[in-house]
Amino acid sequence: MKKRFGLAAAAAAVVALLLSGCTTVPDAGAAASGGGAKGDGKTVGITFSDLSNPVWSELVQEAQTYGKDKGLSVNYVDAHNDAATQVTQIENFIQQGVSAIIICAVDANALKDVTAKAQKAGIKVVGYTQVLTNYDSQYLVDAYKTGYANGEAAGKWIQKNYGDKAVEWGLMDLPRFPEIIERAKGIKDAVAKVAPNAKLVATAPALTSEDGVANAENFLQAHPNIKMIATIGGGGAVGGNEGVKSAGVTDFKTFGLFGIDATQQEIQNIMKGDPEKSTISLGGGKAHGRTLIDITKELLDGKKVEKDQYMPIKAIDSSNAKAYYDEVFGGK
């Protein structure tokens, strides 16, 4: 199966959604009514660990729209970071007789039995970001390499702006997911290698933009000499960018924030000369939504599909942000 890593697949990304970091979606058991779109063919259920993540919210909405174009009726639900809720959601999808289920797991181990049950019922199982035990195909992040690319960009920025001077920095991580732990490890390893003078003085988890705002403010209150913050995702990066400003930082040339996801707001921040200096593109929420639907459609059509597929990794900074923005977001 041809990997779909084209940037053109990711059209205009969300703006206000990124600032709010949340969306309204149906809860467990509501897949048949709210959050649904009628297609002309088979049905697909999507369950995500937490749709307050702006990239994931964008993803499921794009999957719903694009799925309809492909003749699929797509329904999505939010597990609200509760593994038991997600098991119930998958059980509901099985009872509804869906043709395929796309899963971003809260806890992959908790889904071992229910995904086996789905496959036994003839339902295709597609994983996203979190590695499942039972699946037909998965779309994954090379977590360590993604984090390393982020940390490498941050380390180079530190070296360019501070040379051998000691620099304090903070990290927004998300340690409840094994893959994100690896992403954070990659960030730390790269910073340590490229900018050995840098000292990590603060860490806190961040999934949403609200988390990012609070963390940045808290970091700078506790450690006013922090000059760099790295984040494991776009939610923390967007919020962190605003939090740095609200904490009183005014010289954006000497403060750097580094993100992952390359959301529309992140790219705009980089182009404006805001605290965010770089972000790592993994294709984007809209592109991922389309890719997951393409994978699912080919599975349902009986085509041969690669079991493990990986997202692209590309660093976006001031040197290529405008070109990336024009290509991905249409220059709007």
Rank of each mutant, 00 (worst) to 15 (best):
M311P: 04
I280W: 05
D326Y: 12
F93K: 07
I158T: 02
S278L: 01
A184G: 14
A9H: 12
A8W: 13
G21W: 03
Y144P: 02
L59D: 03
A247N: 12
E276I: 13
Q86L: 10
D113T: 15
T23C: 02
G186K: 03
N53Q: 06
L174G: 00
H223Y: 10
V114E: 06
W169C: 04
V305C: 03
V25K: 05
V14L: 10
D113G: 13
K277Y: 06
V167W: 01
Q89G: 02
D294G: 01
M1R: 07
T85M: 12
D274P: 03
T88Y: 05
L299H: 13
G41A: 02
M311K: 12
V25H: 13
G233M: 06
A31I: 03
N241L: 06
A154K: 03
N320R: 01
K199C: 04
Q95G: 00
N134W: 08
A143M: 10
L292D: 07
A287Q: 14
A321V: 04
V141H: 09
G283E: 07
V14T: 14
T279K: 09
Y66A: 07
P275K: 04
K322Q: 15
M172V: 07
N75I: 01
K193N: 07
G240I: 03
K314N: 07
F258V: 05
A16M: 11
E168C: 02
S52V: 12
I90H: 01
Q95S: 14
D142V: 11
G236Y: 08
K227Q: 11
S20T: 15
Q86A: 11
A166M: 13
T296K: 03
A214I: 11
G45P: 00
K297F: 01
L72R: 02
S246M: 03
F93M: 15
V249K: 08
G284A: 06
T203C: 08
G122H: 15
Q130R: 15
W157M: 10
N81L: 14
Q130G: 10
G35W: 08
A321M: 08
K286W: 04
A321S: 10
D301W: 06
N215D: 09
E168Q: 15
L282F: 07
L207V: 07
K322P: 07
V249L: 06
